[in-house]
C-alpha cells in the first residue's frame, strides 16, 4: 500500500514519504500546520486512496482518553434495574465501545483519524500511550482484553493549542504541512476547479498571496479560504481584469468576505486601499 496523493488532493513529496512511513511501520502520524491547509482532509484522502474504511474521532475540550476506548453507561443500567429489565444481569450490555475499540475490533484494517488532539486536556495524549503503542486495552467491567486484529493506521491532527508530551511524540511520525507555494497552490486549484480560466487563477493567486503578505493581519487567508473565494468568483462570473490589484478603484478585491474573516482585517485592507488610491492620484 503506497499513498501518492489522489485526484482531489495534491500531496507534496515529503508528505507522501511521511504517510508511507506511518502506513508501513504502523505507527501514528501526527500532522500539524496552519489552519486550513488540509490536515483533516488528508485523512479522508488517505482512506480513499488506500481504500480503507475511515473512523473519525473528533476530540473536544471535554474528551477523555477513556471515551475512545469505551464508556460504561451506568445511568441506563440503574434505570433498567429499577424497571426490572433482564438486560441488567449482563454488564456487557452497558459497555459502549469507543472509536479505538471499533478500530481494533474491525474485521479489516481501518484508518482512524483522531482530529484536533490538542483540544483535549493536556494529559489526554499520555493516557493513550499504551493503547496506541500496543494497540490493546483492558476492559475492567467485563475483564476482557481488546486487542487489534489489524493494526489501524492512525492519523492525528493538531492545531498547536497545547504542547504534546514528549513520550507521545516519540511514538509518532511527524509532518508539518507547510503553506503551499504558488506552484503547488496552482495544482491544488486545478484539482478542485478543472474548468477554471487560467488567467482568473493567475490574478486570484496574485491577490491572494498579496493579501497574505499584508503585515499585521489577524487571520491570514489559507487554502480553504482561497478555494471558497475562487468558487465564488466563478459563480459570480467575475472577469479576471477586475482582480488586477493595481487598478485604482477596485483595490479591495471583490467578494473579499470569503478571504478575510475578521472585521479588523477588512478595515485594514480598506485603509490600505485608500492610501494606495491617494498615492495614485
Amino acid at each position: 500500500m503506497r499513498f501518492s496523493g489522489t485526484e482531489n488532493y495534491v500531496a507534496t513529496e515529503d508528505l507522501m514519504v511521511a504517510v508511507n512511513a506511518a502506513v508501513t511501520l504502523e505507527r501514528p502520524l501526527l500532522v500539524k500546520g496552519e489552519p486550513g491547509t488540509g490536515k483533516t482532509v488528508l485523512a479522508h484522502e488517505i482512506a480513499a486512496a488506500l481504500k480503507l474504511p475511515l473512523l473519525t474521532w473528533h476530540v473536544k475540550s471535554t474528551t477523555k482518553a477513556q471515551h475512545g476506548l469505551y464508556e460504561y453507561d451506568a445511568v441506563s443500567r440503574l434505570r433498567d434495574s429499577q424497571l426490572g429489565d433482564a438486560k441488567v444481569k449482563d454488564i456487557a450490555n452497558y459497555i459502549k465501545p469507543g472509536k479505538l475499540w471499533q478500530a481494533f475490533a474491525a474485521e479489516s484494517r481501518q484508518l482512524l483519524l483522531i482530529d484536533e488532539i490538542d483540544k483535549a486536556d493536556i494529559e489526554f495524549p499520555n493516557d493513550l500511550l499504551l493503547e496506541l503503542d500496543r494497540m490493546e486495552f483492558f476492559v475492567f467491567e467485563t475483564g476482557e482484553t481488546i486487542k487489534a486484529q489489524h493494526r489501524p493506521i492512525i492519523i492525528i491532527t493538531s492545531n498547536n493549542e497545547k504542547e504534546l508530551p514528549g513520550a507521545f511524540l516519540r511514538r509518532c511520525f511527524f509532518h508539518y504541512i507547510r503553506f503551499p507555494e504558488r506552484e503547488t497552490m496552482e495544482r491544488i486549484v486545478a484539482v478542485h476547479f478543472p474548468g477554471v480560466k487560467k488567467n482568473l487563477v493567475r490574478e486570484a493567486l496574485n491577490v491572494f498571496f498579496e493579501i497574505r503578505e499584508v503585515p499585521g493581519l489577524k487571520k491570514r487567508p489559507s487554502t480553504s479560504e482561497l478555494l471558497d473565494w475562487i468558487k465564488l468568483l466563478m459563480a459570480d462570473d467575475i472577469p479576471p481584469e477586475a482582480l488586477k490589484a493595481k487598478d485604482v478603484k477596485t483595490a479591495v478585491p471583490p467578494l473579499y468576505g470569503a478571504l478575510l474573516k475578521n472585521e479588523q482585517d477588512v478595515h485594514m485592507l480598506e485603509r490600505l486601499a485608500f492610501l494606495a488610491r491617494r498615492e495614485g492620484r
Binding site: E13, V17, A18, N20, A21, T24, R170, F173, F174
Partner: peptide
C-alpha cells in the same frame, strides 16, 4: 524507527526521500 523505516524501503533510495523520512521520524516539533 528511522532505521526500521529505511529497512522496509519506505523512502526509496534517493537522498531527498531519506531526508523527508528522517525529518518525519526524528523531528516532532515544527
Amino acid at each position: 524507527a528511522l532505521i526500521e523505516a529505511v529497512e522496509t524501503g519506505v523512502a526509496g533510495y534517493s537522498v531527498e526521500d531519506f531526508y523527508y523520512l528522517a525529518r518525519a521520524s526524528l523531528v516532532k516539533d515544527e
